[in-house]
Design a protein around this nucleic acid. Structure first.
Lengths: 229, 229
DNA sequence: ACAATTTACTGATAATTATCATATTTTAAA
DNA sequence: TTTAAAATATGATAATTATCAGTAAATTGT
């Protein structure tokens, strides 16, 4: 496993690619590598972050606790994504928790390295800005989806999203296996409702399951459902 | 009315304050001032923007059309806010429409001025980044609110939001008067449902109305409702 | 000032979604 | 391996919210 940022392929997927060689060296010297086990937090809502986390492996859910005690998952972050940027940039405590959905391997980069580069390298700043602009656009889409689509449509969308972003295994199941509760927290519905819809989709031949694993059977019909047919 | 950016107070509220004198002069020379009448669009979903709009006066709703034909209002932008930034930065067409809720006065700043400064002035880029980080955080809050709160709670929240962000007039009505439909599009519900809840709040003495104007009567109870009591 | 149009409102009802209760299966721990 | 705990599943029911139909009020243009 390569341990120098200069040679890390992961970098190509995030804003760190806009750093200069020297900047990367500094980052690499200051970074630490951590493993986080499934279910453990990288950080929690309200924490003040002393740096960002670059995901090398595994998946993390970014979620926010609501007043009624339910979590809402706002994003699923995987290989190449940088977590905690927003908090470091705005120098506020995070509004989200990051919890490992898989076993993860992450690099922790102290905020000093980031802030330094932000102030000196406009290319890097611009790259971060582009990423954040993209995230914001996605967030707008999520808002519209949640408020204008039915739970059934959002469930269908969630499965397609999981397929497109995390792929399938050899047996045709979604590579990322979420608990029913996590699924309901992505979709923004009660766990029982999510389970019920999974059963319904199964009966209709849209998906198949095996334990908690879910596979997509009829992508077209799922897509039609999202579109509202 | 001052027409040079260098002397414009509005600037203090947005990222333009991080521009240098020379940069501001260039912006000022290239900008054009427009008035937009109530109901008219600044730009529409899918447009490619050739610049950003700095709001001098009035309020604009930023909304996105959903598949079922309803608009979702994602943000209400007022004096000092810069619209279209995201689109210009990511060089994509906008995902949102901006429509005047009031008569507006805006300055249009061609994207060249912005892009130039973004590449040369890290302070400016960082400032824009901070703003975007803030917007993203707010978007997360909206997501959690919509998915975890009831329509009634979101209505209560919307009224408090309008009071806190746009204030009240001499008679105790919210300064920003939205149509019932716009309110429902902010909250993410059917117009009839919004109207029904307004009637209910009125009966309970939480608000009072006069025509389409709405005033807050019992802020505390509204707050309690938002919190879930 | 008046007709035309849009917006606001109300009731009845249907559809969607959440909640509670409980059974079953799976997973983890002793 | 057995037991306990957690996750999944399903039914019954209640609560919430949307939709449709229709009336009243307000706004706009002439």
């Amino acid at each position: 496993m390569e341990s120098r940022c200069e040679n890390c392929i992961i970098r190509q997927f995030n804003s760190l690619r806009a750093m200069s060689k020297e900047e990367l060296k500094k980052v690499s010297d200051s970074k630490t590598t951590k493993t986080v086990k499934k279910g453990e937090p990288l950080f929690e809502e309200g924490d003040k972050l002393n740096g960002v986390y670059c995901v090398r492996n595994g998946v993390s859910k970014l979620s926010k606790l609501s007043a009624n005690g339910k979590d809402q998952i706002v994003k699923l972050a995987t290989k190449g994504e940088v977590l905690g940027q927003r908090s470091v940039i705005s120098q506020e405590s995070t509004n989200l928790s990051a919890i490992a959905v898989d076993d993860m391997e992450v690099c922790f980069i102290p905020k000093e390295s980031i802030n330094n580069t932000l102030q000196k390298n406009p290319n890097f700043t611009l790259e971060v800005l582009r990423h954040m602009a993209h995230d914001l656009k996605e967030a707008d889409d999520v808002i519209v989806n949640i408020s204008q689509k039915t739970v059934k449509q959002r469930m269908a969308e969630a499965f397609l999203y999981l397929k497109n972003n995390f792929g399938e295994d050899e047996d045709g199941f979604l590579s990322l296996t979420l608990s029913r509760e996590d699924i309901s927290n992505v979709v923004g519905t009660a766990t029982e409702s999510a389970i019920r819809i999974i059963s319904e989709f199964k009966k209709k031949g849209l998906i198949h399951t095996s334990g908690k694993k879910i596979g997509i059977k009829d992508e077209r019909k799922l897509l039609e459902m999202v579109e509202g047919f």
